[in-house]
Design a protein around this nucleic acid. Structure first.
Lengths: 94, 94
DNA sequence: ATAAATAAGTTTATAAAATAAACCAAATCT
DNA sequence: AGATTTGGTTTATTTTATAAACTTATTTAT
């Protein structure tokens, strides 16, 4: 029987964000925007959702007076991704 | 760079339907409903969407006077699933 | 020095999707 | 005969994703 898919991760942009963050120490807003080619608004919203459930940590600092948003995946985020991947495999028959 | 994910397939219920149909000759509404535990309304709507894009064929017949909806995957559907799986792999790092 | 364009975001509005609730016709159970 | 269940569809509601508009600061060009 197919398991339910974590609705937070089952979203193209949020999955892309997590996929990028899983491979790096941290990534900032600008980098994520370039890699995903998402609009700033959409990226902002989805980062917030991932943070709210604790899958990523977000650090807002300033570079001079320019804002800088740095994201990194949490242990909970890694675990959620691992379960999501396992669940998806059944759907994809892989 | 991550490829866009087919929005028709990137939906839990539609993916479940396709995942089931890929492994059988055909499946009817009742069977799909049991396997997915979706509501009838939701299942009806999602079957229609998959049919509209040509990923499945739907045959509506009668068993006596009781309606019977039979679904089967098409070649286009198989191809779409294959591409979707390949695209997703990049997101999942597998 | 100042106006115009770009950068880094956030907030609000809109469009699209998923889901649920209501409904219908036929069959079955009491 | 009346109530319940089966196999759906249609319509309404909620949730989600996305885009558009806006803010503050920084460059770039004039």
């Amino acid at each position: 029987m197919l398991k339910p898919l974590d609705p937070i991760l089952h979203s193209e942009l949020r999955l892309a964000i997590m996929s990028i963050l899983i491979g790096v120490e941290s990534a900032d807003f600008v980098y994520l925007r370039k890699q995903t080619s998402a609009t700033a608004g959409n990226l902002s919203v989805q980062i917030e959702k991932l943070q709210k459930v604790g899958y990523i940590e977000v650090e807002k600092s300033f570079n001079g007076r320019m804002p800088r948003t740095t994201c990194r995946i949490t242990e909970a985020g890694r675990a959620a991704m691992a379960s999501y991947v396992e669940a998806l495999k059944d759907y994809l028959n892989i």
